[in-house]
Amino acid sequence: MYHLKFTYDSQFHFTTPIVGHYFTVKAIPQSTDRQMIRNLSVSVDDYEFLNSGKDGFGNLTKYGSNSKEHTSFGFHIKGECELYEEQFEAERNPSTFLGIYLPQTQVTMVSNNMEHFFKQCPFYPTESNYQNAFHIMQYIYQAITYCQNATNISTTASEAFELKQGVCQDYAHLMISCLRYFKIPARYVVGMMAGEGYSHAWVEVYDKGYWFGFDPTNNQEVDHQYIKISHGRDYSDCMVIKGLFRGNALQSQDIKVCVEIEGQE
């Protein structure tokens, strides 16, 4: 078992005061089969109303609003995480919730060029989804190059595929697209990875009652360096922060994510 410590801080600045601000934060990890979250603390700055909830996928949310004038907003999440040796998550309702991870979404839609590319992917119908996911991950890993500024948050799998460049979100979308092309249920995951920087995104693949994590950006299976936050059909179900406000303001955002591995038992 591994012990990790994490902090997730995000701060927004608005150049002029804004009003009518609504927000939903989806950056709160929860205990699952593979991780145990302890001493969790979630705080939000500059709110008028604040509540907790869950979305349709079971992800935890903190949401609220502020109708008064303000120029900043932030949230801070910290806690400890214990990661077990077994790195998979059981699906308790395979027949009721699996089907939504099979159809492509707007973002993962397969273009003609992608289809041509997927057709040459090493896929073996006799092997398990888990084994095939390895082949697919390697295949996707080689298809694009990691590049910070080539894509943005709304880039689709097919756009990233044409650019042959992208970040973790693009790798994950492409891999999901390919898995679903081969009728393997796959979901998008947002989480944190050991080290410091931003949040990370990867993929979970369903096989015989369990979800297995694959990180196509790093071409490796998800292990003790990964803390999961949320999952959904694609990035739009897992947006860490969503907000609406009124005001003629420009906004800037600072994100600081830090995960330290404290030790192993």
Partner: peptide, 29 residues
Amino acid sequence: SDCAIVKDGVVPEEFIYASSGYLPECKGI
């Protein structure tokens, strides 16, 4: 909630989940 009608094979799951009217956000409400 339970999706018994899908489990019992009366309605194929493709017709539920590929429908644009199906909202996973409503699951469990």
